[in-house]
Nucleic acid binder design. Structure first.
Lengths: 195, 195
DNA sequence: GGGAAAAATGAAAAATGTGTCATTTTTTTT
DNA sequence: AAAAAAAATGACACATTTTTCATTTTTCCC
């Protein structure tokens, strides 16, 4: 591990992320991180003081990466249909990567830290942002004549609940690509897509 | 603790259930159960060998109770609408009891035990049963002229994903009764209820 | 109420995890 | 290349949890 300190921190974070994806949140110990990183015990504490701190940084890292990925996939002057397609494609990709997702760890973390104020609730903000973004998307889709969605806000909320349901079942009881496709198709029917 | 052995086992199980509801699955230790039950260290091991074994028995217990509760609420000659109403009422009740549910613990358990064969996957069976029951319900509702649901199987699956989504968000990011009602209403619109 | 069987106890060994710090290794500076 | 600074190590003291088991307490039957 002859890397510089910033790189090493990054390396620890990436390795920790894999550990959280494999074991969830509450089952992970500092020892697990130490073993996975193949660094010394004291070395880890130089960078992070607890699994909690580590996890919060992993969340931050992931959030940034997700935003970048999404932005990178949307071309110039996208139509509502284009944006929806990218959104669903990204969701589907995450859905099908069983055991390669932070979904369970995130929910465990929130459950174990239920005292954290609403405003700092990362997943909550993400969920609400999702609802808002989809609502606007459906509204502009209506205006553009691409969708005919009677209740954009309700439909957006419904989308988000289905996606959370799919994510959690995918990580635990399993799901096939075919089933994901069927369900996403079902959702899209609610948009009354006209093209 | 002067109780007989069968009663004591039951008592431990009920107490353990509360612990799992409070702390989830992977964060719970045998010590937590011992402390909550106010029994001796060794005493617990006389009945259960691990948190894993305890949790499986709690699941079994809960499954039986849920079936009983549901059956007890359905009167004679119920119409499809009656059954749906009981189903949604029960789901809503579970949804709103934050911190008083095994939802998180169940998913943690499955995630931590992802090697268990599909056929023994309790939540998976429950999910599939839910889809089947709702499908039949929607079909008979169509026949009775109470619903007009184009795709009973798809709608049933969609219902179940939404319910899982609601359950998990309710336990972690929080949800109001109003939001639950809105979402359940949204679902019911998909049934084209005619009455 | 005496004695055998069953149930329960809690002390303690073994295993695992935490956080610290004196020391060593590596890097940087002069 | 020597000195200083920075980074990294891993052994250690402490805490927690698991699991066992010799002993005690309770129950139950005659």
């Amino acid at each position: 591990m002859g890397e510089k300190s910033v790189k090493k921190k990054q390396y620890i974070l990436n390795t920790a992320r894999k550990v959280f994806m494999e074991k969830g949140y509450s089952a992970v110990t500092m020892k697990d991180i130490v073993d996975a990183c193949e660094i010394s015990r004291g070395g880890l504490y130089l960078y992070f003081g607890s699994t909690d701190e580590l996890f919060r940084e992993v969340l931050k890292l992931e959030s940034e990466e997700t935003d970048d990925t999404f932005a990178g996939q949307i071309g110039e002057n996208p139509t509502p249909s284009d944006i929806l397609a990218v959104f669903l494609k990204e969701q589907k990709k995450e859905l099908l990567h069983k055991g390669d997702s932070l979904t369970i760890a995130k929910y465990e973390y929130l459950f174990a830290n239920s005292e954290i104020p609403r405003k700092d609730n990362y997943l909550r903000k993400q969920f609400e942002t999702g609802v808002k973004v989809l609502t606007k998307l459906f509204e502009s889709g209506n205006e553009a004549g691409e969708f005919s969605c009677e209740d954009p806000a309700g439909t957006a909320r419904n989308f988000m609940y289905v996606i959370e349901g799919l994510k959690i079942t995918s990580q635990t009881i399993g799901i096939t690509e075919q089933t994901v496709d069927k369900e996403l198709m079902f959702l899209m029917q609610g948009l009354g897509i006209t093209n």
